[in-house]
Nucleic acid binder design. Structure first.
Lengths: 343, 343
DNA sequence: CTTGAAAGTTTACGCGCGTAAAAAGTAATA
DNA sequence: TATTACTTTTTACGCGCGTAAACTTTCAAG
């Protein structure tokens, strides 16, 4: 490694014995130059460390190699996990992932998109806030930038959607619960942030009716993303008032279930499916901590890997072909039942 | 809002009736132009939406308004939380936070810094991986870019460090545990990723000896960041072998403690400080989920807010004064005992 | 009304690179 | 060896903005 500082592509072209346009071509696509030329450039790269100026490279492009990843909340372990996976895939494909969290705030969500627009991304992968999102602004953004939605769907926004099939996964766990004990009631937030919640409630009701049971929906008050706290508060009240219509609770998601588990513990209710248990509790999502709750949480796992892979793949296909599909593509992946200790 | 598209600063200067250099001056610092001029520009901004081209703006600067935030792992709720707070503060101060996670991988950590270098950040806030970090490369980066470390300290790296005082906070909880029951043993990973772990162990030993008790350190095997799993496995073996030297376990951090709690539950050991409890378990950090474990986890909370504020403040002071301090500044904040159900 | 500093305008150059066009060179085929 | 198709080089321009220098206008104070 030489100590001579290379200040720009001109100087680097000089030390590698080539012209700047050829070097420029190499950096845009190493395959586009003759193998021997490539070797010379790569040899020079070992001796002098040079990287094209990020800003100058992107200034003239109308699209860059940046791919935006926008999720509702980076503090939520689910989204932290998924966005990590997506970021990896994006980086492997030779793009630069730019990760942004919206903190549950629709204004922040739009801000994130505006910030992304500044860096002229090749495309965006986004898990929208859902119900509270500013749909018109989202649509406008998606007209300009190829966008794939994941996790929660908003009709007409983006070129594609990849997510879980709430209908089958809720059916899966409702059937399991009915088969192995009392039919469950359904525990959710009254004003859920995420549109999946509505689908899950609907799927619960439909499955219960199909099985000939009466559905019971319990709704917790509270806004925001502090799901454990909301679940805890509402469940504590339920337990104190002994208002539970059944001994089995299916929660709309694992974070609520974690709050409910905690409330049950503090109310002295033993949770599980064994002898001496007063209550069964199940969740949905297979949150990273679900396997370490007490008892471990029975839930439905979403196929994180498949969601990540499919959404990235769809976006890259659009970017690399340059073709925006005429019809919006929607893909639902099946969940898997995770039978653990709590139900 | 007019529909005329403004393509660049020249056009925007034209519609606002000013010259481009004046407009440029405004965007660099709105206070630097006469109030009347400012009004004209801001009026124009309402009619035509124009934002200076991000890449062109930064191309000529040798430092930008970007501030990098690098944490070991974005999937860890602790870092997710802290980096969210830091990002907010950075944004409030008029800078653009760029968040990067190193995934527990020292190479990724260096990669992150190299990527940051490309965008010429005004400064960087970093929680280093610690023991496994490539210290030489970190140092080199910190020579070029003003950097403040937080969470875990590496001597000689960065201009300042802000973190918790492990010594006092471990003393706090050890004293509490000794006062209210059997003296604790200390549960940690044999090869912890984070240097705080070593300080915590040392603080435990010293406090125990000061109080006239014999310290016991139990070490779990396992590498990586899957702390709950590592804690669970090791604790399960301990419980099965009945090898515990005391009925009180102080875990090096909350994530390990969550694993240990889960193992205790599955081993049928009742955890808590009440009658009929076989075991007390405590943690350290006040992880977001600690208040929802079963039982709730007694722990020491780190002062997230103060860590965020102080580290951001120190970095901004350096950036805005343009002065790199000659002496490295180190700041330790005290933790607070969170007495809950588990101990 | 004069004066002088502060603010704004004009003009001009540079940043580092993408990229187009024409010329020159290189490698495989006939 | 001549032909042909690629590659590479040369030359030149443009992107959008920062910024310096010299000049002109504005505005408040004397």
């Amino acid at each position: 490694m030489s100590d001579i500082k290379i200040r720009n592509m001109d100087e680097f072209a000089a030390v590698s014995g080539l012209s700047r346009p050829t070097v420029s071509k190499y950096f845009n696509d190493p395959e586009s130059v003759r193998p021997r030329t490539r070797e010379r450039i790569e040899a020079a790269l070992e001796r002098y460390d040079y990287t094209p100026n990020f800003f100058a490279v992107n200034q003239n492009r109308n699209v860059t190699k940046n791919i935006g990843i926008v999720v509702p909340n980076l503090s939520d372990p689910f989204f932290a996990e998924v966005s990590r996976g997506i970021g990896d895939l994006v980086a492997e494909a030779g793009y630069r992932p730019v990760l942004l969290g919206s903190r549950g705030d629709p204004e922040q969500e739009i801000d994130n998109l505006e910030n992304l627009r500044l860096i002229k991304p090749a495309g965006v992968l986004m898990a929208p806030l859902g119900r509270v999102s500013d749909v018109e602004k989202l649509k406008k953004f998606c007209e300009d930038v190829p966008t794939v939605l994941f996790d929660s769907n908003i009709d007409g926004v983006g070129e594609a959607f990849v997510g879980s099939n709430n209908h089958t996964s809720i059916a899966l766990i409702v059937e399991y619960l009915c088969r192995t004990g009392e039919p469950p009631c359904f525990f959710e937030m009254r004003t859920p942030a995420n549109p999946n919640a509505h689908k899950r409630r609907a799927a619960y009701i439909e499955t219960m009716e199909r099985l000939g049971h009466k559905p019971h929906v319990l709704q917790a008050e509270g806004e925001g993303w502090d799901f454990e706290a909301i679940g805890f508060e509402a469940a504590s009240e339920l337990f104190a008032g002994r208002k539970l219509p059944t001994n089995t609770i299916l929660c709309s998601n694992d974070r609520l279930a974690i709050g409910v588990l905690s409330a049950a513990y503090q109310a002295g209710l033993r949770v599980g499916h064994g002898a001496g248990c007063a209550l069964r509790i199940a969740g949905h999502d297979d949150h990273p901590f679900s396997r370490y709750t007490c008892p471990t949480l029975t839930t439905v796992s979403q196929d994180y890997a498949a969601i990540s892979e499919n959404s990235v793949q769809r976006l890259l296909a659009m970017i690399e072909s340059g073709i925006r599909p005429t019809a919006r593509e929607v893909m639902y992946l099946d969940g898997r039942l995770e039978m653990r200790g709590s139900a």
